[in-house]
Structure formats: structure tokens, C-alpha cells
Design a protein around this nucleic acid. Structure first.
Lengths: 192, 192
DNA sequence: ACTCATTATTAACCACTGGTCAACAAGGAG
DNA sequence: CTCCTTGTTGACCAGTGGTTAATAATGAGT
């Protein structure tokens, strides 16, 4: 009933994902081709389609790890020893740092509009936002407006979307990140 | 010395731009091909390369009109009869409305990273931002921090970049636009 | 051992893309 | 009637994502 066990040198999903991921560090979704992955793997590009139905599916598998990483970063900041205000700053800075340090990935997670990718990662993106919103609320003394939290998230997203044109990583935008985060904290916490 | 006058039915830059522009209303940069433009124009796609050195150059020519439109919208809001606070709201709403009503264009103006396009439109984008920053400052009673204005701009950009995943035009996001604009005004005008 | 069903892989193929270029048509100037 | 220039064509290139018939490889059942 299972006429062939996956022998040692057979192609596996894992190998494909690893290779795609490797290229994904320095190139973005559009720059990576099925053929470039196959070439590096020493197989024909058609073989990949036996394991994944299309290019988007490979990258979605990779993205789910990055969504986890983003969520973990948030958790770590929340579980840290700092006071509420520091934590809030760290959450904001952490989000922007993640986006700037994983630009190709962030692009696919939140920026690109691709019929294939969009549907797949939309759910994960919403989940990440929910976590973010809950964390921000729990760090605030007073009850915040949902719309204010939403606006704050959008502003963080805007920072990443904008600065990726100008910097290669978080380090290069450190000061600007800090300034933006503090602006948002002021906006969020000031009573009118 | 001018051995051939551009006879009536010859291809012109204008015709090419018009056709590209026409398709640009419903499709984005990536979805429009040199061949689809040529087909509609009844010529071979090679002919277009006589008038434009590449695809990016055609779309950059189109974008410059949209940068003007964005700048004009700003001017109109500034020259209106309203009081400063209303003007500030209109400037913010106007920016987001422009982005949501011209999504394919906004994408190319501010979002896409393309080696060809990027270099060309970066200057125009900076100029638009300068106008924005000056306007916002002039509408404010007190002296604003440059960084606050910058953060505000980034937050507006973030709104467009985010909502284009969910709505087709400004109308569909009207309420959210208003809420976001008011959040930013609060953030910008509150003294600490 | 031999068959048989299943899994995995290849390579040719499809319809596209942006871009180049030799050949050629059309027309004005001398 | 040449010559020179402006435009245009269509074949071509190298590349893309995706499909598919043929085939190699393997384990199970007899």
C-alpha cells in the first residue's frame, strides 16, 4: 500500500523550503524563480510542482515561520521585566525592527497584493494584529479606543513600508524608529 | 534636415501614454505588458521601444501627472475658505483619498520597489512630502517638531498601504479615513 | 523472481514577459 | 533619381510560472 519509501536522496518539501528560504534572505519573492531553486537543488523545476502546487505555496510555508517569529517577539517583550511604558516602547520598536530586518518577508506578509499569497497570509496577518492590539491595551492604564490602537498599528506599518526604500536593516534607522515609536506612545497615551 | 514629418497615423509618445494610462485605470504596472499596449494600438511591441527606452519610462511619464494631481489636491485644500483645523483634516483625508482612489498609481509612486521606477519617482515623492510638511506646519498654531510631521506622513502612508488590501476606493473606507485623520490631528496638536 | 501499482522525476512543451536588432518601408532634400 | 533619416516590423533572445506524457525507481503480493 505504500510502495515506495522516501529514499535518502529524494527531493522533499523540506529541502525545497530550505533552498527557497536561503534565497529569500537576499532576494525577494519576485526575484526567486522555480528554476533557480531547482538548479540549486540539482533537479528539474517540474519536480518541485510535485511537492507544491505553485510558487506561492512554497513561500507561504516559509512565511508562517516569520509570522510566528513576529508573534514571539511580541510575547518576549510582553513577558520581560520592564515596566509598562518601556514594554510599550519595546513592542513598537520590535515591530518596526522586525519589518526592517526581514524586508523581503515583510513585503510578502503585509505589503504585496498577490492573488495567491494574499488569501493565504491574510489570516495570519489578522491574527498578528489581534495579538498586537491586545498587548497594547493591556499595557495601558486607561481604556484605549480600538480605533486608536488600529491607527497606531497602521502607523507602524507605514514606517516599515516607507523606510524599506531607504535603509537595509533596523540598525540604519534606529534613531528614526525610536522617534516614531515615542510619537505614537504620546499620541496613544495623552488624554484629551 | 528633417526628412520625414510625423504623418497622421504614425505612433506618437502621446498615443502610447494614453493607451498605457487607459489600461492603468483598471490594471497595475505588472499586469500591463508592452504587448498589450501595442496590440490595442495596432502596432508591434517593438515599435514602442523607438519612443520609450523601456516600460518604466512610459509609466514614469504617467506618474508625473499623478504627482501633480496629488500636489494640486493639497493646494486646493490649503487655498480653501475653511479654518486651519478643518484644512488640516482635509489635507489628511485628501491624501488618503487620493491613495485609495488611485491604487495602482499610488503603488508605483510610493510602494513598489523597482530599480527602474524607484530612482525616477523618488525625487517627485520627496517633493510631495516637502509640500505636505510645509502645509501642515503652516496650519498649526505652534511650532511643530519636524519629526512629528514626518511621523504623521508615515501614518497616512501606512493607512493607504494597509487599506488597499481591503477596499477598492475612498468611499469604502470613508469612516476609517476620518477616524485615522482625527487621531493624527490629536497626536499632532496636543501639547505634552 | 516476477508482476504490479505507486511515487517521484525528467524534459519537452505552453503561453507569456521585457528587451534587442537587422531588415525594410516611407517620405523629404539635394 | 538617389540618399538619408524616421519609423516600423517581426524574428529573436533569455527568462518566467505552470503542465504533462513518459519513465525511472521502489516496495508489496504472488
Amino acid at each position: 500500500m505504500s510502495p515506495r519509501k522516501p529514499s535518502t536522496k529524494d527531493l522533499t518539501k523540506e529541502m525545497i523550503i530550505n533552498e527557497a528560504h536561503k534565497q529569500f534572505i537576499t532576494k525577494d519573492f519576485q526575484q526567486i524563480s522555480m528554476r533557480s531553486i531547482a538548479k540549486e537543488l540539482g533537479c528539474s523545476h517540474g519536480a518541485i510542482y510535485y511537492h507544491f502546487k505553485n510558487k506561492a505555496e512554497i513561500f507561504y510555508a516559509i512565511l508562517s515561520d516569520y509570522f510566528s517569529e513576529l508573534n514571539n517577539t511580541l510575547d518576549e517583550n510582553m513577558n520581560g521585566p520592564d515596566d509598562h511604558n518601556t514594554k510599550l516602547l519595546n513592542v513598537f520598536v520590535g515591530y518596526m525592527a522586525f519589518g526592517l530586518n526581514n524586508q523581503s518577508q515583510y513585503e510578502l506578509m503585509f505589503i504585496i497584493r498577490d492573488s495567491e499569497i494574499d488569501g493565504l497570509s491574510q489570516e495570519a496577518a489578522n491574527h498578528s494584529y489581534e495579538k498586537f492590539a491586545q498587548s497594547v491595551q493591556s499595557l495601558s492604564k486607561a481604556e484605549l479606543l480600538i480605533s486608536d490602537i488600529h491607527s497606531t498599528f497602521i502607523a507602524l506599518h507605514g514606517f516599515v513600508a516607507h523606510y524599506r526604500h531607504y535603509v537595509k536593516n533596523y540598525e540604519e534607522a534606529k534613531e528614526a524608529v525610536d522617534v516614531h515609536a515615542k510619537f505614537l506612545i504620546k499620541a496613544l497615551t495623552l488624554r484629551e
